[in-house]
Design a protein around this nucleic acid. Structure first.
Length: 198
DNA sequence: TCACTGATCGTCT
DNA sequence: GACGATCAGTGAG
């Protein structure tokens, strides 16, 4: 079955990280996994931009954040709080460290596979939040550096339908740069994590 | 429904 | 040695 739309080309992705964060709302994330294909509609993102003290790349390149400096459209996967992984899409040009945290998806295809990994959670909670999303799609550091615009285990595809109304707010869970409004989400979508109000 | 907290470990200071 | 782009469970109101 090929419910998924076509793969996104790198040339279609905005170079600017903030624009990329908005662009990705409503697009499709595809996980080709040994157990089967899982897809979801991206409903919530956050931009971590150049010169942003909350961005992992702010203090320069290290072994941990190296993938964040890849050309836009690559995956940066990191491990946090000793428990969770989170998925970012690199922004900007090669050598510049910036990216978009994918915070939530609306499960579309392979929901049973995701649910089994998420211990039978309700559909709305399966991938609501970056740690839950990574768990549901079996994303870990093996996928760090993956090209999301190429054939592989994880890639980006176009929209399945028009995006809903996109709202903007402060980012979640930060202690620095807390006033920057770089979180984008579909305001009427129940699969979004955190507060719905700007 | 909201606020608070422990879990847990890789990374950098 | 401290802390973090989180989550689930608990208890109070």
């Amino acid at each position: 079955m090929s419910k998924s739309p076509r793969r996104l080309r790198r040339g279609e992705l905005p170079v600017d990280t903030t624009e990329l964060a908005q662009f990705l709302i409503g697009k499709t994330l595809v996980r080709d996994h040994p157990q089967g294909r899982m897809t979801g509609r991206i409903v919530e993102t956050e931009a971590y931009v150049v010169g942003d003290a909350a961005c992992h790349a702010f203090r320069g390149e290290t072994p941990r954040n190296r993938a964040l400096f890849l050309e836009r459209g690559h995956a940066y996967v990191y491990f946090i709080y000793g428990c969770w992984h989170a998925l970012n899409v690199c922004g900007e040009v090669a050598g510049v460290g910036a990216g978009v945290l994918v915070r939530a998806i609306q499960p579309i295809e392979g929901i049973e596979i995701m649910r089994s990994r998420r211990d039978g959670q309700r559909d709305v909670d399966i991938a609501r939040g970056p740690g839950r999303l990574a768990t549901a799609l079996d994303i870990d550091r093996r996928l760090n550096g993956t090209d999301l615009c190429a054939d592989g285990p994880l890639w980006l595809a176009g929209s399945l339908g028009p995006a809903g109304r996109i709202a903007r707010s402060r980012r979640i869970g930060l202690s620095r740069e807390i006033d920057r409004k770089l979180r984008f989400f579909e305001s009427d979508n129940p699969h979004v994590s955190g507060p719905r109000a700007p």
